[in-house]
Design a protein around this nucleic acid. Structure first.
Ligand SMILES: [Mn+2]
Ligand SMILES: [Mn+2]
Length: 291
DNA sequence: GGAATAT
DNA sequence: ATATTCCAACGCCTA
DNA sequence: TAGGCG
Protein backbone atom coordinates (compact mmCIF):
# COMPACT_ATOMS: atom_id res chain seq x y z
CA UNK A 1 0.00 0.00 0.00
CA UNK A 2 1.25 3.47 -0.88
CA UNK A 3 1.11 5.68 2.24
CA UNK A 4 -0.17 8.59 0.18
CA UNK A 5 -3.11 6.52 -1.07
CA UNK A 6 -4.49 5.75 2.40
CA UNK A 7 -8.01 7.13 2.71
CA UNK A 8 -8.21 9.89 5.32
CA UNK A 9 -11.16 11.45 7.16
CA UNK A 10 -12.12 14.42 9.36
CA UNK A 11 -8.80 16.21 8.81
CA UNK A 12 -10.04 19.46 10.35
CA UNK A 13 -11.32 17.90 13.57
CA UNK A 14 -9.56 19.54 16.54
CA UNK A 15 -7.39 16.95 18.34
CA UNK A 16 -5.12 19.13 20.53
CA UNK A 17 -7.16 22.27 21.28
CA UNK A 18 -4.43 23.99 23.35
CA UNK A 19 -1.61 23.27 20.91
CA UNK A 20 -3.89 24.00 17.95
CA UNK A 21 -3.40 20.66 16.23
CA UNK A 22 -6.08 19.00 14.11
CA UNK A 23 -6.45 15.34 13.28
CA UNK A 24 -4.89 16.20 9.92
CA UNK A 25 -1.85 17.65 11.71
CA UNK A 26 -1.45 14.39 13.66
CA UNK A 27 -1.58 12.33 10.46
CA UNK A 28 0.85 14.72 8.74
CA UNK A 29 3.27 14.31 11.64
CA UNK A 30 3.31 10.54 11.27
CA UNK A 31 3.60 10.76 7.49
CA UNK A 32 6.67 12.98 7.86
CA UNK A 33 8.47 10.94 10.54
CA UNK A 34 7.64 7.58 8.94
CA UNK A 35 11.11 7.01 7.46
CA UNK A 36 12.73 7.47 10.85
CA UNK A 37 10.00 5.92 13.00
CA UNK A 38 9.03 2.76 11.10
CA UNK A 39 12.40 1.04 11.67
CA UNK A 40 11.74 1.31 15.41
CA UNK A 41 8.29 -0.28 15.05
CA UNK A 42 9.19 -3.00 12.58
CA UNK A 43 8.60 -6.52 13.87
CA UNK A 44 7.33 -5.37 17.27
CA UNK A 45 3.89 -6.02 18.74
CA UNK A 46 2.18 -2.65 18.93
CA UNK A 47 -0.24 -1.20 21.45
CA UNK A 48 -2.28 1.72 20.17
CA UNK A 49 -3.56 4.55 22.33
CA UNK A 50 -6.50 6.04 20.41
CA UNK A 51 -8.45 9.26 20.89
CA UNK A 52 -11.22 9.39 18.26
CA UNK A 53 -12.54 12.69 19.66
CA UNK A 54 -9.17 14.29 20.38
CA UNK A 55 -7.25 14.32 23.65
CA UNK A 56 -10.18 16.02 25.42
CA UNK A 57 -12.46 13.08 24.66
CA UNK A 58 -11.89 9.70 26.20
CA UNK A 59 -8.94 7.66 24.98
CA UNK A 60 -8.31 3.93 25.16
CA UNK A 61 -5.50 1.45 24.75
CA UNK A 62 -5.97 -1.19 22.08
CA UNK A 63 -3.95 -4.36 21.59
CA UNK A 64 -6.27 -6.61 19.60
CA UNK A 65 -6.49 -5.41 15.98
CA UNK A 66 -9.99 -4.31 14.97
CA UNK A 67 -11.80 -6.61 12.52
CA UNK A 68 -12.30 -3.74 10.08
CA UNK A 69 -8.56 -3.05 9.64
CA UNK A 70 -7.65 -3.75 5.98
CA UNK A 71 -5.83 -6.94 5.09
CA UNK A 72 -2.60 -5.11 4.20
CA UNK A 73 -2.15 -4.25 7.89
CA UNK A 74 0.11 -6.92 9.43
CA UNK A 75 -1.51 -8.72 12.34
CA UNK A 76 0.30 -11.40 14.36
CA UNK A 77 -0.79 -13.81 17.06
CA UNK A 78 1.07 -13.12 20.28
CA UNK A 79 0.66 -15.46 23.24
CA UNK A 80 -0.17 -13.97 26.61
CA UNK A 81 1.90 -15.14 29.52
CA UNK A 82 -0.89 -16.96 31.28
CA UNK A 83 -2.79 -18.34 28.31
CA UNK A 84 -4.75 -16.64 25.56
CA UNK A 85 -3.71 -14.83 22.42
CA UNK A 86 -3.60 -11.21 21.32
CA UNK A 87 -3.87 -10.37 17.61
CA UNK A 88 -1.35 -7.54 17.61
CA UNK A 89 -0.78 -5.07 14.82
CA UNK A 90 2.88 -5.02 13.73
CA UNK A 91 3.61 -1.76 11.93
CA UNK A 92 6.23 -2.49 9.30
CA UNK A 93 5.50 0.30 6.81
CA UNK A 94 4.49 3.94 6.42
CA UNK A 95 1.03 3.09 5.04
CA UNK A 96 0.11 1.25 8.22
CA UNK A 97 1.42 4.14 10.33
CA UNK A 98 -0.75 6.60 8.39
CA UNK A 99 -3.75 4.26 8.49
CA UNK A 100 -3.50 3.91 12.27
CA UNK A 101 -3.11 7.67 12.68
CA UNK A 102 -6.33 8.11 10.70
CA UNK A 103 -7.88 5.62 13.14
CA UNK A 104 -7.08 8.29 15.75
CA UNK A 105 -4.08 6.47 17.18
CA UNK A 106 -2.13 9.26 18.83
CA UNK A 107 0.36 7.19 20.84
CA UNK A 108 2.31 4.13 19.68
CA UNK A 109 3.68 1.81 22.39
CA UNK A 110 5.99 -1.05 21.43
CA UNK A 111 7.44 -4.23 22.86
CA UNK A 112 11.13 -4.56 23.74
CA UNK A 113 11.31 -7.74 21.63
CA UNK A 114 10.34 -8.62 18.07
CA UNK A 115 8.09 -11.33 16.55
CA UNK A 116 11.03 -13.58 15.65
CA UNK A 117 12.24 -13.70 19.29
CA UNK A 118 9.39 -12.62 21.53
CA UNK A 119 11.02 -13.98 24.68
CA UNK A 120 14.38 -12.30 24.06
CA UNK A 121 14.38 -8.50 24.23
CA UNK A 122 16.69 -6.50 21.98
CA UNK A 123 16.20 -3.39 24.11
CA UNK A 124 16.79 -2.52 27.75
CA UNK A 125 15.03 0.65 28.92
CA UNK A 126 15.17 2.59 32.16
CA UNK A 127 12.40 5.16 32.40
CA UNK A 128 13.20 8.28 34.43
CA UNK A 129 9.87 9.31 35.99
CA UNK A 130 10.10 12.50 38.05
CA UNK A 131 7.44 13.85 40.35
CA UNK A 132 6.29 17.35 39.46
CA UNK A 133 8.75 20.18 39.98
CA UNK A 134 12.11 18.46 39.48
CA UNK A 135 14.45 20.78 37.51
CA UNK A 136 15.33 19.43 34.07
CA UNK A 137 19.06 19.75 34.76
CA UNK A 138 18.65 17.14 37.51
CA UNK A 139 16.88 14.78 35.10
CA UNK A 140 19.63 15.25 32.53
CA UNK A 141 22.23 14.47 35.17
CA UNK A 142 20.42 11.26 36.14
CA UNK A 143 20.29 10.25 32.46
CA UNK A 144 24.03 10.87 32.13
CA UNK A 145 24.79 8.88 35.29
CA UNK A 146 22.81 5.94 33.92
CA UNK A 147 24.59 6.27 30.59
CA UNK A 148 27.97 6.28 32.25
CA UNK A 149 27.16 3.07 34.12
CA UNK A 150 25.80 1.47 30.93
CA UNK A 151 29.14 2.16 29.24
CA UNK A 152 31.08 0.74 32.19
CA UNK A 153 29.30 -2.59 31.78
CA UNK A 154 29.58 -2.70 27.99
CA UNK A 155 26.14 -1.38 27.01
CA UNK A 156 25.77 1.47 24.53
CA UNK A 157 23.33 4.04 25.93
CA UNK A 158 20.80 5.99 23.87
CA UNK A 159 18.50 8.68 25.23
CA UNK A 160 15.11 9.97 24.22
CA UNK A 161 12.94 12.76 25.53
CA UNK A 162 9.63 11.05 26.24
CA UNK A 163 7.46 13.96 25.16
CA UNK A 164 6.02 13.94 28.67
CA UNK A 165 7.96 14.72 31.85
CA UNK A 166 11.01 12.49 31.67
CA UNK A 167 13.68 10.73 29.64
CA UNK A 168 14.35 7.13 28.66
CA UNK A 169 17.85 5.66 28.66
CA UNK A 170 17.84 2.65 26.32
CA UNK A 171 20.45 0.15 25.18
CA UNK A 172 20.42 -2.40 22.33
CA UNK A 173 20.81 -6.08 23.32
CA UNK A 174 22.01 -9.11 21.38
CA UNK A 175 18.91 -11.15 22.40
CA UNK A 176 20.95 -13.81 24.16
CA UNK A 177 19.07 -13.14 27.40
CA UNK A 178 15.41 -13.56 28.29
CA UNK A 179 13.20 -10.99 29.97
CA UNK A 180 13.91 -12.21 33.48
CA UNK A 181 17.67 -11.78 33.10
CA UNK A 182 17.22 -8.43 31.39
CA UNK A 183 14.88 -7.13 34.07
CA UNK A 184 17.29 -8.20 36.79
CA UNK A 185 20.12 -6.34 35.06
CA UNK A 186 18.01 -3.22 34.61
CA UNK A 187 17.06 -3.26 38.29
CA UNK A 188 20.68 -3.77 39.33
CA UNK A 189 21.74 -0.81 37.16
CA UNK A 190 19.00 1.44 38.50
CA UNK A 191 19.65 0.39 42.10
CA UNK A 192 23.36 1.03 41.65
CA UNK A 193 22.74 4.62 40.55
CA UNK A 194 19.97 5.15 43.12
CA UNK A 195 22.16 3.86 45.96
CA UNK A 196 24.59 6.69 45.37
CA UNK A 197 21.78 9.24 45.78
CA UNK A 198 19.02 7.65 47.85
CA UNK A 199 17.35 10.94 48.73
CA UNK A 200 16.86 11.81 45.04
CA UNK A 201 16.24 8.45 43.38
CA UNK A 202 14.20 5.31 44.03
CA UNK A 203 13.18 2.14 42.23
CA UNK A 204 10.18 1.63 44.53
CA UNK A 205 6.95 1.08 42.65
CA UNK A 206 4.58 2.16 45.42
CA UNK A 207 3.93 5.88 45.38
CA UNK A 208 3.79 6.17 49.17
CA UNK A 209 7.35 4.79 49.36
CA UNK A 210 8.71 7.22 46.79
CA UNK A 211 8.03 10.49 48.51
CA UNK A 212 9.32 13.29 46.28
CA UNK A 213 11.99 11.14 44.72
CA UNK A 214 12.54 10.43 41.03
CA UNK A 215 11.25 6.97 40.09
CA UNK A 216 13.66 4.88 38.03
CA UNK A 217 11.12 2.56 36.39
CA UNK A 218 12.62 -0.71 35.22
CA UNK A 219 9.29 -2.51 34.93
CA UNK A 220 9.14 -1.92 31.19
CA UNK A 221 11.72 -4.73 30.84
CA UNK A 222 9.22 -7.58 30.99
CA UNK A 223 7.21 -9.77 28.64
CA UNK A 224 4.13 -8.02 27.33
CA UNK A 225 5.32 -4.61 28.57
CA UNK A 226 5.87 -1.65 26.28
CA UNK A 227 7.66 1.67 26.08
CA UNK A 228 6.67 4.70 24.10
CA UNK A 229 7.98 4.40 20.55
CA UNK A 230 10.42 7.00 19.20
CA UNK A 231 8.60 9.83 17.35
CA UNK A 232 5.29 9.12 19.11
CA UNK A 233 3.15 12.19 19.69
CA UNK A 234 2.02 12.24 23.30
CA UNK A 235 -1.66 12.76 24.08
CA UNK A 236 -0.99 15.71 26.37
CA UNK A 237 -1.83 19.40 26.10
CA UNK A 238 1.75 20.37 25.18
CA UNK A 239 1.78 17.90 22.24
CA UNK A 240 5.31 16.72 22.98
CA UNK A 241 6.95 14.16 20.71
CA UNK A 242 9.05 11.27 22.04
CA UNK A 243 12.36 12.22 20.45
CA UNK A 244 15.65 10.35 20.24
CA UNK A 245 18.49 12.73 21.13
CA UNK A 246 22.23 12.87 20.79
CA UNK A 247 23.96 13.16 24.14
CA UNK A 248 24.91 16.66 23.08
CA UNK A 249 21.29 17.64 22.40
CA UNK A 250 20.22 16.37 25.81
CA UNK A 251 21.89 19.42 27.39
CA UNK A 252 19.47 21.76 25.63
CA UNK A 253 16.29 19.69 25.38
CA UNK A 254 13.24 19.58 27.64
CA UNK A 255 11.38 16.26 28.02
CA UNK A 256 8.47 17.74 26.05
CA UNK A 257 10.61 20.16 24.05
CA UNK A 258 9.86 18.75 20.62
CA UNK A 259 6.47 19.45 19.07
CA UNK A 260 5.45 18.16 15.63
CA UNK A 261 6.37 21.56 14.15
CA UNK A 262 9.86 21.48 15.66
CA UNK A 263 10.35 17.86 14.60
CA UNK A 264 9.41 18.81 11.05
CA UNK A 265 12.04 21.57 11.08
CA UNK A 266 14.74 19.30 12.50
CA UNK A 267 16.80 17.97 9.62
CA UNK A 268 18.85 15.43 11.47
CA UNK A 269 19.38 11.76 10.93
CA UNK A 270 17.76 9.59 13.59
CA UNK A 271 20.13 9.56 16.60
CA UNK A 272 19.03 5.97 17.29
CA UNK A 273 19.57 4.81 13.71
CA UNK A 274 22.75 2.80 14.33
CA UNK A 275 21.45 1.23 17.54
CA UNK A 276 21.36 -2.34 16.28
CA UNK A 277 25.07 -2.17 15.36
CA UNK A 278 25.83 -1.94 19.09
CA UNK A 279 23.85 -4.85 20.48
CA UNK A 280 25.40 -6.08 23.73
CA UNK A 281 25.20 -9.08 26.02
CA UNK A 282 23.19 -9.00 29.24
CA UNK A 283 25.24 -11.73 30.87
CA UNK A 284 28.52 -9.90 30.19
CA UNK A 285 27.00 -6.71 31.58
CA UNK A 286 25.84 -8.54 34.70
CA UNK A 287 29.33 -9.92 35.27
CA UNK A 288 30.90 -6.50 34.70
CA UNK A 289 28.49 -4.91 37.16
CA UNK A 290 29.38 -7.49 39.81
CA UNK A 291 33.02 -6.28 39.81
C1' DG B 1 -13.48 5.47 14.56
C1' DG B 2 -16.41 2.07 13.81
C1' DA B 3 -18.90 -2.15 14.84
C1' DA B 4 -22.14 -4.34 17.94
C1' DT B 5 -25.68 -3.98 20.98
C1' DA B 6 -29.46 -1.68 23.61
C1' DT B 7 -33.34 1.48 23.59
C1' DA C 1 -33.23 5.57 13.85
C1' DT C 2 -30.39 6.89 17.52
C1' DA C 3 -27.76 6.22 21.86
C1' DT C 4 -24.44 3.60 24.33
C1' DT C 5 -20.65 0.60 24.86
C1' DC C 6 -16.36 -1.43 23.91
C1' DC C 7 -11.64 -1.17 22.62
C1' DA C 8 -4.82 -3.49 27.95
C1' DA C 9 -2.60 -6.44 31.05
C1' DC C 10 2.90 -7.98 33.15
C1' DG C 11 5.24 -8.62 37.08
C1' DC C 12 6.82 -6.83 41.24
C1' DC C 13 5.71 -5.04 45.83
C1' DT C 14 2.77 -4.30 49.70
C1' DA C 15 -0.98 -5.16 52.62
C1' DT D 1 -4.09 -13.62 47.11
C1' DA D 2 -5.85 -9.28 45.82
C1' DG D 3 -4.64 -4.43 44.54
C1' DG D 4 -1.43 -0.51 43.29
C1' DC D 5 1.48 0.91 39.82
C1' DG D 6 2.99 2.45 35.03
MN1 LIG E 1 7.83 7.57 32.09
MN1 LIG F 1 -16.86 8.83 17.59
Amino acid sequence: MNPDDVELSNLDKPFFPDAGLSKGDVIAHYRKVADQMVPHLTGRPLTMRRYPDGIGGGGFFQKDASDHFPDWVRVEEVPQRQGGTIHHVVCDDAATLVYLANQATIEFHIWLSTMDALEHPDRLVIDIDPPQGVPVRVLRDVARRLASLYREVGLTPYVQATGGRGFHVAAPLDRSADYEETRELSLALADHVAARDPDLLTTAQRKNKRGDRIFLDVNRNAYGQTFVAPYTLRARPTAGVATPLTWDELSRTEPDGFTPARIARRRKKDPWQDMDDHAASVSKARKALAD
